[in-house]
Design a protein around this nucleic acid. Structure first.
Length: 975
RNA sequence: GGGCGCGUAGCUCAGCGGAAGAGCACUACGUUCACACCGUAGGGGUCGCUGGUUCGAACCCAGCCGCGCCCACCA
């Protein structure tokens, strides 16, 4: 016998372990089973579960469980991301806190990286255990890490190939530099925020004391009316310290005010350099003074202008954002931090009388998304991916509908970004990550190869070809590098997202192939040991050569047909939040299409669908953040209400295109829902409703059972359709309503007479039908509430399989039974009407009233009689046939019949009269409304016939109702 | 400056061309043998505003008014 409540705290761990042990999380590879694949968005190894993860993984798990039950061979590929900056930060902070007086630099690169690995092994990946708490049914036997051996190999291969194809290159240009982490970052990692700032207006004196007339007043047509004589040009800046690196002052070529100055020079104060005044389209004559100082080495716009005009670039800062000891910078600023330099510059300009004014101004400033410090554009050598070229097929694949975004409007966002994509800076000046496979020779020549040996070979070949002898090459090693190797490896590592971009195929075994599939379908989770019988490495898709190797070459069939990679790539759907479309989705599209080919050599998309879900906000619609203190910890909710309740809450609110506001009250409500189901099951158990093998739902005998079979089948259909369309909220809503308001509120109540009555065919069938329906319920709810459903599934009977792998209830046409549905709805509505009127008329619940048919037809009478038990029990009445109408009756008009509850002395006749009047008025009102419609010629002519017909029927119904109500009123008056 | 989305019952939100819905909250009643984490019944909305399209608009279109978010180089 079940307890009164589900003890989720006890059950969740036990059930999860049983699932995992059973091998249910691994692909079944059953014969003929279609593969279904999701790769998890890999959480950072440093991560811990937040609400966004909880939602993301709840939805993935719902899909995975749904498809697994539908018999597909399901793979949910898990793993974690090494998260370059984040992880390096964590370990550096640990070092600082350890008090060992050690930092990354004093340790040295190898020791530090070793230390990070240690951290990863002991403390990393905690989030994966938290995902298990949520019930995520990933195939943990396949867990991967972006820096494990296989994935690192994929990274090397991709980098080298792209380099050889000219799609990765090294370039010196302006990048976003993070002075805190002392690394370059990509455009996407820059957060542009509006902050309070200042706008400083400076005078740059003209060379040789030259003067010009500058208009200071204008008439209404914009013609100057007053001039002043100036010996300077006015510029404005939000970053005064950068003036030390100015290479020019630019004005618009059409700006008449400055025309006499173009080609002349002005003095750059403090630096005491003369710089040209040039004409360029960039300055907006209407903004500020119309003249712009050009700091080519520290501003993206200025850089473009400097290049156009071949201006000298003055680099001002070191990697920490401190002023360099350069000879073009006055010595007094050397070594100052950029903000100290700013103050000094402003003070000095002011001292020279060159400060015109300081304006308060909102300015947009770039911040590093992880460091939070202001980003400095810096001129450095970095590695870039030619994203523009790679984006082309990625755009096309979406245009052709090979990959679909759900909801569809995200395609627009995707296009917008992809069509304006910039070169992707992939090098990072960090230590934790995939080190770039590039080596430099003594002459600075760059050799890119997967291994140092290969690079070395290339180097020797190159230098040999240039006429160096082997001895001389060895000399290069000995002398020019003091005995160091000939080649020096690039110090940089790759952007974390570089390896993430390969995730959908690198995790599945690319480039080496993967453990082959187990043969046959017996025994879930039995991993095959063989398959690539010849032991040749399997090369799926494109290798270095873009062409597919022609069949009949080395292998007879396309290589690797039976590998996980061949079966599970392209993946079925990617489930993620929109904030990661650019970082990740777009890049997976680019890399997947470039590297993965099918057996015909056609580029393969990484996933068929991209489901973009909402953000989880707090109950007031605020983004959750530590600083706001409004973070809701999913684990706390799981502890308190169980994983099922949290999952259901998230799924039920996951409507497309809207954010989720999470409130604890709602989680509590769905916990209650679980308890409701639990008690319904408990009731079934008490009444010995066990799954009966002999029960065929299609041939149930009693109307009640035929009705619940029909309704269950309809619910299965609704849940299935909703899940297929990623309408999680609809699926959750459908099963919720069915369980609570159909199965519990009506079916179980209606089944009580049979279940609690005498033994016999009806009781036997009802037990079986209830058990059958409950089984369907458990299955349909399983994707959302896996724990409680599995527990109940196991509580009933010996089962062939655990619920997690039980077959999904397919909609079955043989179970449709409209007649039973119609008949029962009649009864349910009658019961509802009686209840409603009883309450309205204040009939005490204990009163058992008589119920008789006053006016009706034989059908109504027979229905009344055949459903007598149900009506009597639920409406608390006694059905009486053939008794004369009594005085002081309440009358109920239901469909085409009128019933009466003779309650002389209990009811207030005046109140009853009032009630009937009100109902008559309501019917009359509806009739008027419909008449208006029907009187409209245009409606009759233009509306579809069935709509017109429907309105006529409605009118007739109201008409009949009104007549019956009037008759009832007359009877009331007459008696 | 572009782009996306949202304004429907007190709250959180479904619905998106043919009778205004759910959950929570609220009110009344209820010790009926599954469940008070419950049951029964009920109150509550000119679907942001203004126009337009349509026989018909919460739903489609346009314009406003509020509120979010994303992207963008005005020094």
């Amino acid at each position: 016998m079940l307890d009164r409540n589900f003890n989720f705290a006890e059950a969740e761990g036990r059930i999860y372990a049983a699932w995992e042990m059973s091998g249910a999380f691994r692909p079944s590879n059953a014969p003929g089973a279609e593969p279904y694949t999701i790769v998890i968005p890999p959480p950072n190894v440093t991560g811990s579960l937040h609400m966004g993860h909880a939602l993301n993984n709840t939805l993935q798990d719902a899909l995975i469980r749904f498809e697994r039950m539908r018999g597909k061979s399901v793979l949910w590929q898990p793993g974690t991301d090494h998260a370059g900056i984040a992880t390096q930060m964590v370990v550096e902070r640990q070092l600082a806190e350890s008090g060992a007086n050690q930092d990354r630099r004093s340790m040295g690169r190898d020791a530090f990286v070793e230390r990070v690995w240690e951290w990863k092994e002991t403390s990393g990946g905690r989030i994966l255990n938290q995902l298990k708490r949520l019930g995520a049914s990933c195939d943990w036997s396949r867990e991967r890490f972006t820096m494990d051996e296989g994935l690192s190999k994929a990274v090397l291969k991709v980098f080298v190939q792209l380099y050889r194809e000219g799609l990765i290159y090294r370039d010196k240009r302006l990048v976003n530099w993070d002075p805190k982490f002392e690394t370059a970052i990509s455009d996407l990692e820059v957060d542009n925020r509006e902050v309070d700032g200042h706008f400083w207006h400076f005078k740059y004196p003209l060379e040789h004391g030259k003067t010009y007339e500058f208009p200071i007043e204008h008439d209404k047509d914009g013609n100057p009316t007053k001039w002043e004589t100036r010996d300077y040009i006015s510029i404005a800046t939000t970053r005064p310290e950068t003036m030390l690196g100015d290479g020019a002052v630019a004005v618009h070529p059409g700006d008449k005010r400055y025309a006499p100055l173009v080609g002349k020079r002005c003095l750059l104060p403090l630096a005491e350099r003369y710089i040209p005044i040039i004409a360029d389209d960039y300055p907006d004559p209407d903004f500020g003074s119309g003249a712009v100082k050009i700091t080519g080495a520290h501003d993206f716009n200025d850089y473009e202008i400097a290049r156009r005009h071949d201006l000298k670039l003055y680099e001002l800062m070191d990697t920490k954002g401190c002023m360099l000891d350069a000879d073009y910078i006055p010595a007094k600023y050397h070594g100052l931090d950029r903000y100290e330099a700013r103050e000094a510059v402003v003070a000095d300009i002011k001292a020279q009388g060159l400060l015109i004014e300081v304006e308060d101004k909102k300015i947009t400033q770039p911040f590093g998304d992880r460091s939070g410090v202001v980003i400095e554009p810096m001129l450095t050598d970095q590695w870039y991916v030619d994203a523009k070229t790679l984006a082309r097929p990625a755009i096309k694949a979406v245009e052709e509908g090979r990959t679909t975004f759900v909801p569809e409007n995200w395609t627009k966002t995707y296009y917008q970004w992809m069509r304006n994509i910039q070169p992707w800076c992939v090098s990072r000046q960090l230590w934790w990550g995939h080190r770039i496979p590039a080596w430099y020779g003594p002459d600075g020549h760059c050799f890119v190869a997967e291994t140092e040996e290969e690079a070395s070979k290339e180097a020797i070949a190159k230098y040999t070809a240039e006429g160096y002898s082997l001895e001389e090459i060895n000399d290069m090693r000995r002398h020019e590098h003091g005995g160091a190797p000939l080649l020096v490896r690039d110090e940089d590592v790759l952007d974390t997202w570089f390896s993430s971009a390969l995730w959908p195929f690198s995790t599945l075994g690319w480039p080496d192939g993967d453990s082959p599939l187990p043969l046959g379908g017996e025994g879930q989770g039995v991993r095959g040991t063989d398959g690539a019988a010849d032991g040749a490495p399997e090369t799926i898709g494109a290798a270095l050569t873009p062409d597919p190797s022609p069949a009949g070459g080395r292998g007879e069939t396309a290589p690797g047909r039976h590998s996980i990679l061949a079966r599970h790539y392209p993946t079925s759907v990617l489930v993620t939040a929109f904030d990661i479309i650019f970082f990740w989705v777009a890049r997976m599209m680019m890399m997947g299409l470039h590297f993965m080919k099918d057996e015909h050599g056609k580029a393969q998309i990484p996933f068929k669908d991209v489901y973009i879900h909402a953000l989880v906000l707090d109950e007031h619609g605020q983004k959750m953040s530590k600083s706001k203190g409004n973070v809701v910890d999913p684990l706390v909710l799981i502890e308190k209400y169980g994983a099922d309740a949290l999952r259901f809450t998230l799924a039920a609110q996951a409507a497309q295109g809207r954010n989720i506001r999470l409130s604890e009250a709602r989680v509590e409500g769905y916990r209650n829902f679980g308890t409701k189901l639990w008690n319904a099951a408990r009731f079934c158990q008490m009444n010995e409703c066990r799954p009966a093998s002999g029960f065929d739902p299609a041939s149930a005998q009693t109307t009640l059972n035929r009705w619940i079979v029909h309704e269950t089948n309809e619910c299965a259909s609704a849940v299935t359709r909703a899940l297929e369309a990623y309408r999680f909220n609809e699926a959750a809503g459908a099963i919720y309503r069915f369980i609570w308001h159909v199965f519990c509120d009506w079916y179980l109540e209606l089944a009580k007479p049979a279940l609690q009555g005498e033994d016999g065919a009806e009781k036997t069938e009802t037990r079986a039908a209830a058990a059958w329906s409950l089984d369907q319920i458990l299955k349909l709810l399983h994707p959302f509430m896996p724990f409680i459903t599995e527990e109940l599934w196991g509580a009933f009977d010996r089962r062939d399989s655990a619920l997690i792998t039980a077959p999904w209830p397919q909609h079955d046409a043989a179970l449709i039974n409209e007649a039973a549905a119609t008949e029962f709805n009649w009864t349910i509505d009658l019961i509802s009407s009686i209840r409603s009127i009883r309450q309205e008329m204040n009939i005490p619940p204990k009163t058992i009233a008589k119920l008789m048919l006053v006016a009706g037809n034989p059908t109504a009478e027979s229905a009344l009689l055949s459903h007598k038990r149900y009506i009597e029990r639920l409406a608390r009445v006694e059905v009486v046939v053939g008794q004369a109408q009594e005085k002081g009756s309440i009358q109920i008009v239901h469909r085409d019949s009128t019933f009466a509850l003779p309650l002389k002395g209990i009811i207030d006749v005046a109140a009853e009269r009032l009630r009937l009047d009100k109902e008559i008025a309501k019917a009359a009102e509806e009739i008027v409304r419909i008449d208006k419609k029907l009187a409209n010629k245009n409606f009759i002519e233009r509306a579809p016939a069935e709509v017109v017909e429907e309105q006529k029927t409605r009118r007739a119904d109201y008409q009949a109702q009104r007549e019956k109500l009037s008759a009832a009123l007359a009877r009331l008056e007459g008696l």
